[in-house]
Design a protein around this nucleic acid. Structure first.
Length: 547
RNA sequence: GCGCCAGUAGCUCAGUUGGAUAGAGCAACAGCCUUCUAAGCUGUGGGUCGGGGGUUCGAUUCCCUCCUGGCGCACCA
C-alpha cells in the first residue's frame, strides 16, 4: 500500500469516527505550491456542512486523530480555511523509486478493466483514397486510447470498419473507369461526387495492365473490386507507416451478404418502432431523443447509411463487446443519436450509452504560416503519408495527440520538423536520451541499478523532490487518461516530466559524486528512464537512447 | 432557427470528481558551453479565465442567459 493509500484511509477513518457518512471518501491531492506540503486534503471543508461545524475545527480534530507515521509523514498541520497538509519525512517518497524500477515495463499498469473486453473502432475510412490528416488524428487517438485501456487491464480489440458498399464506392468505380477510358484517348469526365486525385490514374493504369480484355473498363463490378482492393492496400501501407495495427477489419458489404441488414430491419419492424411514409420506411428515432424521425429504407428500396451502422453495432454487441468506443470526426456527431436510437429500438437490452463516442475536431495543417490544403497524390487534401514523410512518425503521432480531442488542432509542419527546443517531441525524447547518456558515459548497466540499499535521504533538493513526485504520479496519470480517454494528458505529463528531468540534469551532477549520492541519483535517473520510456510507449513513440 | 464543440498570457494550448497566489510551450528581452548531450538550463515581463447573473465557505470548473467562432442539421456518408 502506498503512502497515498494509507493517508486516504486514515483520513476517511478519522472522518467517519467524527460522524461522516459510511461511504465517505477522502480527497487527497498534490498541492500546486510545495509550500502547502507534499500532500493535502480538503476533507474538513467537505464535512463542514454535514457536521455543521467550522472547517478549521474539524481539521484540527482530524489531525489529532491521525496516526500516519507508517506512511512516512513527518508532519501534519492545518491551514486556513481548513486544508490539512502533510509533509513527508526525508527520503520517504524517494524510497518508492525502488518499486518503479522493479516494475520496469509494467510500471503504470493496473487492472482497472478487470480483463473485460472493449472494442475500439477508429479510422474506418472509406476505401476511396489515401488517408488524410483527419484520419491521422483518429488513428493516433484511437490507437493510444486502445493502448491506454490495455495498460489499465482491458482486453482491447482494435477494429476498422470499411464502408465498402455505398454510393461513394460506386463513384470510385466510375472515376477509375473514366481514367481507364482516358488512357485510350477517350474524353471521359469524372462523375459528380467522383474522385480526382492522382492515385485514381495509378489505379486505372494498373487495371488496364491487369485486365487487357476489358479495355474500356466496362465491367464495373470488376473495376470496383480492383479499386477497393488497391486502396485498401494503400491504406494498409499508410497505417503501417504510422505504426497502427488492427485486430479486425469489418466490411460493411458483409452486413448485406450475410443478411444482417435485412435481419435488423425485421427486428426493428417487429419491435414496433417503424412506420411507412412517402414510400419510405422510417424509424421513430424521436422516441429516443432525436429531433426528427429518420428514413431507414429509401423509396427506391435501398437503405440509408445509418441502418447498416445499427446492424454493425448489433454485431459488436453479439460478438460479446459490452463496451464499445467509436473514435470519429466531430462532423459525424449527428450519427450518435441515430445509432443509439436504433439500438434502443431493438429492445435487446443494449445500454443507452452504447456505443461510447470519442469525437475529435478538425485538423488544419500549416506550413510557412499558411494553411496547406493540397497533396500531390490526393489532390484536395493533405495525407497522413505526406506528414510522415515530412516530419517522421514520432512527431506526427505526438502532434496529433497534443490537444484534447475536443479542440481543433493546428499542425504546424515547420515546428514539427524543427530539431530544436520549440519541438516538444524532441524535448521529451531528449530527456530520455540524456538520462541514458549518464549510464553510457559512466559505463553502468541500467539493469544493475535496482534501488536496493540506497540512502534516499540523499535526494533532498527541490528539483529531486519534484521529479520524484512526478515519477510517482505516473500510474495515477495513466489511470486518469484511460478513464477519460484522453491521450493529451499523457503528452502533457511527459512534457512536464521532461522539463523536470532537464532542470535536474542541468543542476545536479551524477557521475563522480560521493558514492552514496551518486548511487541515489543513478536510481533517480533509472526511474526517470522507466517512466519516460513507458509514457512514450503508450503514445507509440520511440524512446531513443541517444540523439 | 435547432443541436454538438470551443472561447484562458502576444501565439498555440493545459487546467484531473469545485480548492490555497490560474499554468506550460512558443514568441519577446537578459544571461549560461574547459562540467554525465546547448536538440539543454536560468531569469524578466505578460491575465477582466468571452460578457452578465446564480449555486457555495470557495467557481476557469456546476446551472441559466447573451455574444463570437467551428462543425452538423437529407429518402448523402
Amino acid at each position: 500500500m502506498t503512502a497515498e493509500d494509507i493517508l486516504r484511509r486514515a483520513l476517511a477513518d478519522a472522518a467517519r469516527a467524527m460522524g461522516a457518512p459510511d461511504d465517505f471518501q477522502a480527497q487527497l491531492e498534490r498541492p500546486r505550491d510545495p509550500a502547502h506540503g507534499d500532500w493535502a486534503s480538503n476533507v474538513a471543508m467537505n464535512l463542514a456542512r454535514v457536521l455543521k461545524r467550522k472547517p478549521l475545527d474539524i481539521a484540527n480534530d482530524v489531525v489529532a486523530r491521525l496516526d500516519v507515521q507508517q506512511a512516512g509523514v513527518r508532519e501534519a498541520y492545518v491551514a486556513p480555511p481548513g486544508f490539512i497538509n502533510f509533509r513527508m519525512a526525508a527520503g520517504a517518497e524517494a524510497a518508492r523509486l525502488r518499486d518503479v524500477i522493479a516494475a520496469a515495463d509494467t510500471y503504470g499498469r493496473s487492472d482497472d478493466g478487470k480483463g473485460e473486453g472493449v472494442n475500439v473502432e477508429f479510422v474506418s475510412a472509406n476505401p476511396t483514397g489515401p488517408l488524410h490528416v483527419g484520419h491521422g488524428r483518429q488513428a493516433a487517438i484511437g490507437d493510444t486510447v486502445a493502448t491506454l485501456l490495455e495498460a489499465t487491464g482491458w482486453k482491447v480489440t482494435r477494429e476498422f470498419y470499411y464502408n465498402d458498399a455505398g454510393v461513394q464506392i460506386a463513384n470510385l468505380a466510375l472515376s477509375v473507369q473514366a481514367r481507364v477510358r482516358e488512357l485510350h484517348g477517350e474524353t471521359s469526365p469524372i462523375p459528380e461526387g467522383g474522385y480526382h486525385g492522382e492515385y485514381i490514374r495509378d489505379i486505372a493504369r494498373d487495371y488496364a495492365n491487369a485486365h487487357p480484355d476489358d479495355a474500356m473498363a466496362g465491367n464495373l463490378d470488376q473495376v470496383r473490386e480492383f479499386a477497393v482492393a488497391a486502396l485498401r492496400r494503400e491504406q494498409d501501407l499508410d497505417l503501417q507507416a504510422f505504426g497502427v495495427q488492427f485486430d479486425v477489419y469489418y466490411l460493411e458489404s458483409s452486413l448485406y451478404t450475410e443478411g444482417k441488414v435485412d435481419e435488423t430491419v425485421k427486428l426493428l419492424v417487429a419491435a414496433g418502432h417503424t412506420f411507412e411514409k412517402d414510400g419510405a420506411m422510417w424509424l421513430r428515432t424521436t422516441d429516443y431523443g432525436d429531433d426528427k424521425d429518420r428514413v431507414m429504407r429509401k423509396s427506391d428500396g435501398t437503405y440509408t447509411y445509418f441502418l447498416p451502422d445499427v446492424a454493425y453495432h448489433v454485431s459488436k454487441w453479439r460478438r460479446g463487446f459490452h463496451r464499445a468506443i467509436n473514435v470519429q470526426g466531430a462532423d459525424h456527431h449527428s450519427t450518435v443519436t441515430r445509432v443509439r436510437a436504433g439500438l434502443q429500438a431493438l429492445g435487446m437490452g443494449i445500454p443507452e450509452g452504447y456505443p461510447e463516442y470519442e469525437l475529435h475536431q478538425m485538423v488544419t495543417v500549416m506550413r510557412n504560416r499558411e494553411e496547406m490544403k493540397i497533396s500531390k497524390r490526393a489532390g484536395s487534401y493533405v495525407t497522413v503519408r505526406d506528414l510522415i514523410d515530412e516530419v517522421g512518425r514520432d512527431a506526427v503521432r505526438y502532434f496529433l495527440l497534443m490537444r484534447k480531442p475536443d479542440s481543433p488542432l493546428v499542425f504546424d509542419i515547420d515546428v514539427a520538423r524543427s530539431q530544436s527546443e520549440e519541438n516538444p517531441v524532441y524535448y521529451v525524447q531528449m530527456a530520455h536520451a540524456r538520462v541514458c547518456g549518464i549510464f553510457r558515459v559512466g559505463e553502468r548497466d541500467p539493469a544493475g541499478v535496482t534501488g536496493e540499499g540506497i540512502d534516499y535521504t540523499q535526494l533532498a533538493s527541490d528539483e529531486e523532490r519534484e521529479l520524484v513526485k512526478a515519477l510517482l504520479g505516473y500510474p495515477a496519470l495513466v489511470t486518469a487518461a484511460a478513464r477519460t480517454r484522453s491521450p493529451h494528458l499523457v503528452t502533457q505529463y511527459l512534457l512536464d516530466t521532461a522539463r523536470l528531468v532537464h532542470t535536474w540534469y542541468h543542476k545536479h551532477h551524477v557521475l563522480g559524486e560521493a558514492a552514496e549520492l551518486q548511487e541515489a541519483r543513478l536510481t533517480l535517473a533509472r526511474a526517470a528512464m522507466v517512466v519516460l520510456r513507458n509514457g512514450l510507449a503508450l503514445l507509440g513513440i520511440t524512446a531513443p537512447e541517444r540523439m
